[in-house]
Every structure is written in C-alpha cells, then in structure tokens.
C-alpha cells in the first residue's frame, strides 16, 4: 500500500469522525443530508459483501467493518435519535436519491468486470459512491452557509477522493498490470463533483471567511 492510498483512507476516516463528532457534540445534524448518508450505507454494504469470502489483510477487514458500522450508525442517529432527528433539514434535503440507486444498479448490470453476484454489486457500489455526494451538495447549496464541521466533513471526503486518484496514478506507474478502469473513471467523476465545493472552500480559507456557497 502506497502513501497516497493510506492518506486517502485516513482522510476518509477523518471525514466520518468529523461527522460523528458534529452529531455527537452538537446533537444536531443540520446541514447534513440523510439521503447521502443512506447512500453511503448502501455503498458499503454492497461493496463489502466480500468481507467473508476474500481476506486481504487485517487492515482491510477492520476498515470495512468500521465503514459499515459508522455509516449505519449515522443513518440510525439521523432517523431515530430524538434531538438529532429534530435538527434534520428535511425540507432542504429533497433530492430523489432512489433514482440514483436505480440508475446505478441498472448501469452495474450493464457494465461490470464479471457477471457474478458479487461483481455486479461491487460495480454498483462504485457507481453509487461516485454520485452519493450529490444530495449533500444540493443541500449545502440550498442552505447557503455551511457550518465549520459540515464544511470540513465535505472537504475531507473530497480530499479522500483526490488522494485515491494520486494512488491510482502511482499504481499505474509502479505495478505491472494495473487496470481498474471502472473504479478509476467513476473516481474521476466523483472527484469532479467536488470541484465547485473545493473552489469555494479554498476561497473562504484564503479570505479567512465563513464558507458560503452561492445559490
């Protein structure tokens, strides 16, 4: 495992910790899209079906379990916890995420590495992860200003994607037969979705001002 990949996994982990911290410390999930969180829970559950069939490393298995449990816990909190539930911006979080799930599944049935149960679900999870951030970005755009922890959450998620791209570039040049075009193309699409957010995040950081997304 190269440094980019490790840094990518760590920023991914940090993003989840930032989100858990926000929910736990403020007992509020305002600014967070439940739809995006639900999509991530589906992404991890669909992708890590191999948890019991293919052992790669302890690191790999532990991270998989952490991602599944944390994403399910976040969804559970936002739906069931009394105080957290109250702070949810339901009227702003109206993106129809079921369409994304349907479209990604159909796409996975058409484009996959192998037509097996696990491989189709793996491809599905890759496509769904690429677009899962959309409801969150739409919510931020609608609410206009973004609180610090929410901004940092999205920033770390974006950083994770960017580091994965560096990881693939590194692997492409260092590994003899490195080809994973499904993951790479989806990853590029996913990272591109963050470009706009990153632009405004950078501006607010440079001007030392609160993060504001123009409508």
């Amino acid at each position: 495992m190269n440094a980019f990949r490790l840094a990518g996994d760590i920023t991914h982990l940090i993003s989840i910790l930032v989100l858990l911290l926000k929910i736990y410390a403020t007992k509020s999930c305002s600014g967070i899209s439940l739809k995006t969180q639900e999509l991530y829970a589906v992404v991890f559950l669909a992708r890590y079906l191999d948890l019991f069939t293919d052992f790669i490393s302890v690191y790999n298995s532990v991270m998989k379990v952490v991602f599944i449990l944390s994403s399910v816990a976040i969804v559970w909190c936002m739906r069931r916890h009394r105080a957290v539930k109250r702070s949810y911006d339901k009227e702003l979080d109206t993106f129809r995420h079921y369409y994304l799930v349907g479209a990604c599944f159909v796409f996975a049935l058409l484009v996959h590495e192998k037509f097996t149960f696990q491989e189709v679900f793996w491809a599905f999870s890759i496509y769904l992860e690429a677009v899962a951030i959309i409801p969150q970005l739409v919510l931020l755009q609608r609410s206009g200003n973004v609180d610090n922890l929410t901004g940092q959450y999205v920033f770390f998620l974006g950083a994770y994607r960017a580091l994965y791209i560096l990881n693939w570039i590194y692997r492409y040049f260092t590994e003899a037969k490195f080809s994973r075009w499904i993951a790479c193309i989806s990853g590029l699409v996913q990272t591109a979705l963050y470009a706009d957010f990153f632009y405004y995040y950078f501006l607010s950081w440079k001007n030392n001002a609160k993060l504001n997304l123009p409508a």
């Binding site: 996994d9 293919d54 052992f55 790669i56 991602f67 993951a183």
Partner: peptide, 10 residues
C-alpha cells in the same frame, strides 16, 4: 489470490 487482490482498495 488474483481475484481477491483485484478489490484490495476500500
């Protein structure tokens, strides 16, 4: 091993 290594990323 080849199969497993294919999805070695998270």
């Amino acid at each position: 091993a080849e199969e497993a290594a294919k999805h070695d990323e998270l």
